[in-house]
Design a protein around this nucleic acid. Structure first.
Lengths: 216, 216
DNA sequence: CCGGACGAAATTGTCAACAATTTTGTTGGC
DNA sequence: GCCAACAAAATTGTTGACAATTTCGTCCGG
């Protein structure tokens, strides 16, 4: 009963466990395919097994862990093939978002995207792949946000969470940022021009290139 | 996805509760926005609250129920706007599946689709909108299946589950089957011709028409 | 030496009681 | 008569113990 993590305040146990576990997986603290024993996790996070269990069910639905009846949970390993299939889904969904965004953005939002574009240029010129990767992620997030497509955004966040490991791998590949940069700038330009079809095409071209890069 | 709807056999309590509750919601037995009290459900299905609770968490992740902290669960109501947004996601994802299917089907699968096409023709001619609706659903399912895109299929099943109510409403609209039929036949033809781009275009045209029909 | 049956350990699934929270109905003051 | 504080009821969140299932090591027979 000594609840180490503030018993009364704010977050409830399940949400807390969910957040911590999710972060741990996304951060890579948990090795791929690592077994997730409910008792261990419960002790580690200072919550009870029921909370961990609820969190695991949630994470299974998000595709981050795999659960087998009476056999336990493990962090899901995303093969390259799966990563490609996931990115194909991203391709069409982000294409949709880009088209909708191009039709809906206001001037301030366009300026925001262009700022991101110059920042990305700088990051590539300075040879900082990690900064570039972050900006990359933020650009995609902003476009989704500006599209106002709540359903699509939800699906995409689910999909993206499954790709963290692959994203890292991709970002550190030499020469990759240069190619990626041009594609991103094209996306920004198309949206800035309020051209839905061009925006969708640009996103598709970009993610097609990502798929090719993934296949090595 | 571990849920094919067999609520009879030696399933475990949570899976049983999940199946029954899911069916009840999809079947429309639960009124929209109806409150789902854990105790009542537990008694109704003859399982304990813990199982119901686990099932509810699952259903929340599937987008079928809404849960608010300390306030309980309710069957989620999908507004027309949301239905449109969901169908827009279906549009791009099913387009992807159709393109992949067109590139991957074998002769037997094509024959299967064409059989469905003639059955649909017959159902429309006979004025049986319910039969037609079922065939419609099966056609979409088969195309997804033949595409081999596991990730996309998973997303689409999630999305479709949220639309049951609207699908019913749409199927019974006079004149709708006729228009829908032609679009479906075009999809079948494009896939039979192994033309990915035409298949994607046909699916997009069909679902665009569905979106327009939804907006009344 | 190998294969299958048996049993113990580990792990998840289920249960009923308890605590915390929100909602609702009521009472008192203005 | 209306609003706020308060108390009671309903409902969800949490806890620890118990049951069912699977896994793994061991032993026996061939």
């Amino acid at each position: 009963m000594p609840n180490q993590a503030r018993p009364g305040t704010g977050e409830q146990a399940k949400q807390l466990a969910l957040g911590q576990l999710r972060q741990a997986i996304l951060r890579g603290d948990m090795a791929p395919a690592q077994r997730l024993v409910e008792n261990e996790l419960a002790e580690q996070f200072g919550v009870t097994r029921a909370s961990i269990r609820a969190a695991l069910i949630d994470l299974e639905a998000q595709g981050l862990v795999e659960r087998i009846r009476n056999r336990g949970s493990r962090v899901r390993v995303v093969t390259v093939e799966e990563a490609v299939a996931i990115t194909e889904c991203r391709l069409v969904l982000e294409g949709l978002c880009a088209a909708k965004a191009a039709a809906a953005v206001d001037d301030g939002q366009v300026a925001r995207l262009q700022d991101l574009g110059t920042a990305m240029r700088k990051a590539v010129a300075a040879g900082e792949p990690l900064t570039y990767s972050d900006l990359n992620h933020e650009l995609h997030t902003r476009i989704r946000e500006f599209s106002g497509q709540r359903t699509a955004v939800e699906l995409l966040e689910r999909l993206n969470a499954q790709l963290v490991r692959h994203r890292f791998q991709l970002a550190l590949r030499p020469g990759r940022p240069q190619q990626s940069l041009n594609e991103h700038l094209a996306m920004i330009e198309a949206i800035g021009a309020r051209d839905p079809q061009a925006a969708e095409e640009a996103v598709r071209a970009h993610l097609t290139s990502v798929i090719e890069a993934l296949r090595d």
